[in-house]
Amino acid sequence: MADNVEAIQKSIKWYFIIGFILIVFSGLTVGLSYVELPTHSLNIIVGMILATIKAALVALIFMHLSHERPLIYKVLAFTVVFVLALFLLFIFSHGDPLEFPGFYNPVE
């Protein structure tokens, strides 16, 4: 943790730079959302990649995760695994062969 005075003084500059980068990225996200990519899913993927980069910057620099204790990393690693389970397993159980057209619902 950046606890000593010098380290904090050094990082102050970075706080403003990161803040500026975040705003630029937000503008970029807005702009890209109006661009027609081959599929809309691609738009979503690009938008989410940008958002993830922004989130990573906030977490690493503002929340000091770039130099945190191992214990916090462990807790967060488990949390991330379970959140991914929430996202992926939900949707995998939704994308079910029974719901493919023609399998269960006769195609009209």
Binding site: F78, V81, F82, A85, L89, F92, S93, D96, L98
Partner: peptide
């Protein structure tokens, strides 16, 4: 504790999950 987060849908076999998910 870890595994208990990854087994929940065995309460939901009757909802008609796909073969892959129910195997998992």
């Amino acid at each position: 504790g870890f595994l208990s987060f990854l087994v929940w849908a065995h309460h939901m076999y009757l909802t008609g999950m796909g073969t892959m998910m129910s195997t998992y």
